[in-house]
């Protein structure tokens, strides 16, 4: 096996895979995309100048791969669905939760679902900053943004999450203990 591949696999594979998974929320797709990341990396490994760390470089490639896959999806799937069937749009949220998430407590499941409601940029920042615990500098590096853009996007993303979490909570509260909410 290729030595570069071997090294990258050992150091970063699960990280990159997890990142892609949380971006696309689909294991099979994430498996395909992680391969795409390796292809791009192996093609351009000689051009890696060590300006940024290997880790942020990989994340930046993974991010491009994820965004490209969104564009592709938007390209044909969405267009066709939207053209022919308006009702299918609501069904999207009903995707079954993956096993790993389904066994977690309710709040985790909720936040997992709320991630969908962020924009792509916001989701990138949330996943990098809090799930992967990258620093602001590393995140800025991976995304090719300024640090202040990372901070504002992060702030907005948390706000969006907060709003939707409360929204969810309120809905559930109504179902279980309607009187309490009334007060």
């Amino acid at each position: 096996m290729d030595s570069v591949f071997d090294e990258l696999y050992k150091k970063y594979h699960q990280d990159v895979f997890q990142f892609l998974f949380y971006m696309v929320k689909n294991k099979e797709l994430a498996e395909d995309l992680v391969q795409e990341v390796y292809i791009r990396v192996l093609k351009s490994y000689e051009r890696f100048e060590g300006k940024s760390s290997e880790k942020t470089w990989l994340f930046s490639i993974a991010r491009n791969v994820a965004i490209d896959s969104f564009c592709k999806q938007k390209g044909w799937k969405q267009k066709i669905i939207e053209k022919f069937d308006w009702s299918t749009q609501q069904v999207k949220d009903e995707l079954p939760l993956p096993e790993e998430i389904a066994v977690q407590r309710e709040e985790i499941q909720m936040i997992y679902r709320c991630l969908d409601l962020c924009t792509i940029d916001q989701r990138l920042v949330i996943i990098m900053r809090y799930i992967h615990e990258l620093t602001i500098t590393e995140t800025a590096d991976s995304l090719g943004w300024t640090e202040s853009k990372v901070k504002t996007t992060q702030h907005r993303a948390l706000k969006v999450l907060k709003n939707h979490m409360e929204h969810f909570k309120a809905k559930e509260g109504m179902d279980n203990e309607g009187i309490k909410v009334e007060r």
């Binding site: 594979h13 699960q14 895979f17 997890q18 998974f21 949380y22 294991k27 994430a30 498996e31 992680v34 993956p98 790993e100 998430i101 066994v103 977690q104 709040e107 985790i108 936040i111 997992y112 949330i126 809090y130 799930i131 615990e133």
Partner: peptide, 10 residues
């Protein structure tokens, strides 16, 4: 809460 999100493995 986010940091407690489960690790997903390939």
């Amino acid at each position: 809460l986010l940091s407690q999100m489960p690790k997903i493995k390939d």
